[in-house]
């Protein structure tokens, strides 16, 4: 059974169709990224899956349960990582993690989780004094304290500096290695490429492409561009057989500044959301 199964999901706000028929399958143990511009319907979709929002239509099953009817047992198997919470400001990190551990039947060890998210040195600090990146790592700690089978990460690294993002990625990879299913939304393509087994692009409330980061939007089969410097200018050749092109070029001597590129995930993505 898949961790998430969605068919024909729709949701409108005041006549505006925020989600216009989304189908989605996420297997157990998979890291699945949903990419899309602001307003594409990412957060709405995820909040419906989390049971935070009602849907207008479609079938949704998360860990075998319809989120609209999920009870305590179901919620105890989910880990929801918030993206902009500023709660628990006057508690210490340790107090907050311990408190939330008490909600679950079989939580992880709070000290272990604090260590896992790299906040051991901040365990006695008040939550309100943490930096943005530390605060988000606490959110992850609170999201995974209950040993969830499925973790939702909604734009988890927005506002992170590059180092904090790399650390965060390491954390997500560790969770994935433990077999946790992860649904990630992001607008950072490098993030999806680094973390996700599969990617879907959401635009205008619909999924416009789906695949592995390598093959998304026909990227693997797309024409390559061979580029080199000749007679004072760059020449670009688009070809499906770059090796052959280069072999022909090489017969006239070594081409200067030779590069072969395929469309990056970003190129494909920008094309898809047009």
């Amino acid at each position: 059974m898949n961790a998430i199964r969605v068919r024909g999901l729709t949701k409108a706000y005041k006549g505006h169709r925020a989600v216009a028929g989304v189908d989605l399958d996420v297997a157990r143990g998979e890291v699945f990224a949903v990419l899309g511009p602001n307003g594409a319907g990412k957060t709405t979709s995820v909040e419906i899956l989390e049971g935070h929002r009602d849907r207008d239509g479609g079938e949704v099953s998360v860990l075998g349960v319809d989120p609209a009817e999920g009870g305590r047992e179901w919620r105890s198997k989910l880990g929801i990582v918030l993206q902009s919470a500023t709660d628990a400001a006057t508690l210490t990190v340790r107090e907050a993690v311990r408190h939330y551990a008490g909600y679950y039947a079989d939580p992880r060890d709070p000290e272990e989780v604090i260590d896992l998210v790299g906040l051991t040195e901040k365990a006695k600090a008040r939550v309100g004094t943490l930096s943005g990146g530390q605060r988000r790592r606490l959110d992850v700690a609170l999201g995974i304290i209950g040993r969830p089978e499925l973790v939702f990460l909604d734009e988890p690294t927005t506002g992170f500096d590059p180092e904090a993002r790399r650390q965060f990625w390491g954390l997500v990879k560790r969770l994935a290695a433990e077999g946790t299913t992860i649904l990630l939304t992001t607008h950072y393509l490098d993030e999806a490429e680094a973390l996700a087994d599969r990617v879907a692009v959401l635009a205008g409330g619909r999924i416009v492409a789906e695949g592995t980061p390598r093959t998304l939007g026909g990227r693997a089969n797309a024409d390559a561009t061979v580029r080199y410097l000749a007679a004072g200018g760059y020449t670009e050749i688009r070809t499906s057989e770059p090796a052959k092109t280069i072999a022909e070029l090489a017969r006239h001597g070594e081409p200067a500044e030779l590069t072969v590129t395929r469309p990056s995930l970003e190129d494909v993505y920008l094309e898809l959301i047009k």
Binding site: E50, R75, I80, L82, A85, A88
Partner: peptide, 17 residues
């Protein structure tokens, strides 16, 4: 305050009734 700072949203995502 709980609604504004995310406390309620967080709690709703946990098995706390």
């Amino acid at each position: 305050g709980d609604r504004e700072d995310g406390t309620l949203k967080r709690l709703r995502g946990t098995p706390m009734p």
